[in-house]
Amino acid sequence: MRATRHTWQGAAALLTALAIAAAACGPGTGADDPVTVYSGRSEELVGEVFDGFTDETGIEVEVRYGDTAELAATITEEGEASPADVFFGQDAGALGALQAQGRLVELPDDVLDLVDPVLRSREDAWVGVTGRVRVLAYNTDELSEAEVPDSVFDLTDPQWAGRVGWAPTNGSFQAFVTAMRVAEGEDVARAWLEGMLANDAVEFENNTAIVEGVSRGEVAIGVTNHYYLYRFLAEDPDFNVDNKYLLGDIGGLVNIAGAGVLDTSDLHEDSFELVRFLLSEDVQRRFGQTVDALEFPVRDDVDAPDLPSLEQIDPPDVDLSRLEDLQGTLELLREVGALS
């Protein structure tokens, strides 16, 4: 029976260790509390930027990385006790949802003024930090840029039957459909979706899978975001996919990754400082130059060398907070049978 006693002792020791670890990791209450960020952008993309903020300002940052929508849901469930100070999301819809719940405070004017008005909240509750543009990714072995249509509405043409990939369950695709509903009307969006389905659009799980599918030749064209391409180019410079920008088309929607400050935060000044830092020239330039994560700067005075300027893209004027109305988009997708 000695073994049993040892087992119990071991278990007791482990539980004690657990309790100590738990106490050590508990939330601190010191005067110089770190700013807590809930980031739907992954550590791979933004981890170093937060480190840079601490180096420059001395303000500590704690970051919880996760899925954008799940983190937004977490903030909702946490309610008033939420430890989050800043929410940094991958799409405007999640920011719009928190704004609609009254969870985001109004940002100071000097922060708002840095950002192109199309790329921020109409209620001043959040700002875009980088732009992410919807594009048609195409297989360069099969097509030249001129052969790729200039508008998403051309994709329902019979010549593209079975040759176009999309991701109806993906958040950024649904945001784009929402924008189409807002800008062009419910009927146009429905007709387009039905046309795509009739044209045997090929379903993928997400944007990465689309770009891979285009590269493998499963499809010739993929409806996706501009930046996935650069991840692949970083690992394989000869990657056989390129982006076509849809100038002035709803298919060229500029969505944002953006940030807002929570009403329940008691560190508003430090949080504003962090958002200000994300919009600073250096950081903006860096977002526009990181080879494997090339995104559009939201400041007019910073250009990304390898990307067209936002002015050239001529983004459709859509109130991005309205991308929050995904329930309507989900229902529409379900009704036309796009969610298999």
């Binding site: 670890a21 738990a22 990791c25 939330p27 977490t74 469930e77 946490e78 309610g79 006790a81």
Partner: peptide, 16 residues
């Protein structure tokens, strides 16, 4: 998340 932050606040987002 829902119960943790309301009932076991000091333990919320700890290893425990």
């Amino acid at each position: 998340v829902f119960f943790g932050i309301r009932v076991a606040t000091p333990l919320y987002q700890t290893l425990a």
